[in-house]
Design a protein around this nucleic acid. Sequence first.
DNA 1: CCGTAAAGAGCATATTTATGCTCTTGTTTG
DNA 2: CAAACAAGAGCATAAATATGCTCTTTACGG
Lengths: 222, 222
Amino acid sequence: MHTGAGQPSSGAICVAIVEDDRSLREGLSLLINATSGYRCGRTYGSVEEAMRLLSLEVPDVLLLDIHLPGMLGSEAVLHFRKNYPSMQILMLTVYAEQDKVFESICNGACGYLLKKTPPAKLLEAIREAHEGGAPMSPEIARKVVTLFQKTGVPEKIDEQLTPQEIRLLKMLSEGYSYQGAAGNLNISINTVRNYIRSIYEKLHVHSKSEAVSKALRSRLIN
Amino acid sequence: MHTGAGQPSSGAICVAIVEDDRSLREGLSLLINATSGYRCGRTYGSVEEAMRLLSLEVPDVLLLDIHLPGMLGSEAVLHFRKNYPSMQILMLTVYAEQDKVFESICNGACGYLLKKTPPAKLLEAIREAHEGGAPMSPEIARKVVTLFQKTGVPEKIDEQLTPQEIRLLKMLSEGYSYQGAAGNLNISINTVRNYIRSIYEKLHVHSKSEAVSKALRSRLIN
DNA sequence: CCGTAAAGAGCATATTTATGCTCTTGTTTG
DNA sequence: CAAACAAGAGCATAAATATGCTCTTTACGG
């Protein structure tokens, strides 16, 4: 059922696991290797171990536990994304903790599964992740959707801002004064004033903070 | 396989459909009624029709097409959510259009399916929606996750703001001046200044726009 | 080649903000 | 009770912002 090859090869989806609970780790590995079309490569007991050894065989999909001794999985996502951008990361967790869920997803995880997920669903999720989906346990998916709703409908801006104007707006949101922004953009403060004017007109606002707020809400900047 | 009752009853999940393509509408209805545990109530050819008649039998789950003659499904979501808050809304569409997807979800849809979804998955999605999940086709889910990542990790604020401070911050983001906010909160402008001071300290910022930006990014306000 | 538009710059000035103090008045707490 | 603390208010002032004008350059379309 598995190829035994040292590098991702054959048509099988290559999976790796980072999970400190040994029996769960081995159980998952067995399940994956026992299924046609899937192959479990290395498994790791900690993020640190995975970081050291992952380059030996980069999997298609990484199952990553959230609660690990040492570096947390939710933080490790960033590192893995940077170093192995083609690898899809699926988070595994017992509880659907808001913060960790969002942190992981923002950091680049593509999906999020509860450990109670039945084997068939887990395998399906791995495939989905590999094929460009974003598998999530229903509870998690609902949380994501709910948070989305809280951010509100992105405001629509009818007039387009120039790249320069957007850069300036971004600086204002970071606390730059006109003078500071002018220096940074290498233009005179008077020009900054002109840009601001133009931005205000386009966004229909009359103050820096309202402009920043509208720009953020409409996702003009972030 | 269906109860024939006029109101949602029995254990079956009651589904209604808003879809202008008659053959698809009838096909879905047949599928649902042919499946144990599901029951298809009324079906509608337009949002307007559904709005008029939905109160006769409020379903558990509403399948809502995006592209409809008259009012678009993505806009109708708002109305349905307001009037039938317990009803779960599942969007149906041929293409995964960014804007419509996000508009629908922000407006309160709980899930989003492509029409190519196979029958078994569709039925599963309906059940999931009814049980508090948020079923999405993989392509859609990935888009949602990707957008999420763009919003960035919500900044963490270590010090808690008072309700009054949050109200003030919200006003500033709406373009109020100190004077205007003072009037609105029924406090003196000097007190506003004090609050601002306190907010700045807690957020570690030194200007209105930076405060607003941080508050939005950390989801203190929205 | 003239007119128009956009990017950039200058200047003036009324308002607003940011930030430094001090001072009540309650409330809580050791 | 005294001390500590939070909410609210006052005042002063340097700095920054909002907004009104005018003036170069380039670039572009007719």
